[in-house]
Structures are given as C-alpha cells and as structure tokens.
Amino acid sequence: MTKSIALLLAVVAAGAASPALAQMQFEPGEMLARADADGDGRITRAENRAAREQTFARIDRNGDGMITSQDLPGRRSGERLQKLIASLDADGDGRASRKEFVEGRTVAFDRADANHDGAVDRDELASFREAAAQLRSR
C-alpha cells in the first residue's frame, strides 16, 4: 500500500493514545462509513466533506481553528500528529487549518472510490476496509 494509507493508519494508532482521537474511532473505513449521513449506502464527496468538518471540530480541542500539537499535549502520538499536520499543511506554517483539513487531500475517500464516480458504495467500502486491515496486520 502507499505511504498515504500508512499515514492514515498511523493516525489510527494515535487514536489509541489520545482520548480525543480514540473517541472518534479514528479508522479510515469507519470514518467513511459514518460519513453516510443519509444512510443510503453511498458516501458522496459532500457527505465526506461534512464528516471532515465534524472531525476537525473534535480534534481542534482548543477551538482556535488550527490543529497543532497543543491539541493533543503530552501524548505519545505527538510524532504521528506532526506527520498528519505536515501532510495537510499546504501553506507550510506548521499547523493544519480548518480549510487545509476539510478541503485538503481526501486520500481515504479517493482510495475507496475505486470506480472514481465520486461516491463510495458498500462494495468499495468493504474492499477498502479489507485492504486497510491487511496493511495494519503487517
């Protein structure tokens, strides 16, 4: 698998060390599944974006509109959080803004949307979850 999926899985591991992330069950396949706001079995880009907005609000614990290491102080996940921030930080300021997080790369969604139709259906989600589980087991 790619480094992008590996980074997402690193964030999953960070969830185990952080109450804020653990509360979200920060697993890419689960996050996608929860993004299906209308319950029709298809996750659209709009639903994914709305879910990213909600996730940002949960991670940004101090409410300053930025994700920084201060949002998860004193946690073992610091290095992983810094990698996540760096992957999202389009302007290079060392922080991930709401815009960078919400409108940034949608690695999990793009990987799961195997037929590139702009939506992730049940079969695509199942395949994505299986691939992510195999990567985690390595």
Rank of each mutant, 00 (worst) to 15 (best):
M1Q: 01
T2L: 08
K3Y: 12
S4L: 08
I5M: 02
I5P: 00
L8M: 06
V12Q: 04
G15R: 06
G15I: 05
P19C: 04
A22S: 02
Q23C: 00
E27Q: 03
R34F: 00
A35Q: 03
A35R: 02
A35E: 01
D36R: 06
D40G: 05
R42T: 11
R42S: 12
R45N: 10
R45L: 12
A46L: 10
E47F: 02
R49S: 14
A50T: 09
R52G: 07
E53V: 13
T55D: 03
T55A: 05
R58K: 05
R61G: 15
R61A: 13
N62D: 11
D64Q: 10
D64C: 12
I67T: 14
S69H: 01
Q70G: 11
P73I: 04
G74D: 02
S77F: 15
R80S: 14
R80C: 09
L81Q: 14
Q82W: 10
Q82C: 07
Q82I: 11
D89C: 05
D89Q: 05
D93M: 06
S97H: 02
R98Y: 08
R98L: 07
R98C: 03
E100A: 09
T106D: 13
F109E: 08
D110M: 01
D113C: 04
G118W: 11
D121S: 13
R122I: 03
R122P: 04
D123Q: 15
E124C: 12
L125K: 11
S127D: 04
F128P: 05
R129H: 02
R129Q: 10
E130F: 11
E130V: 09
A132T: 04
A133E: 11
L135N: 02
R138A: 06
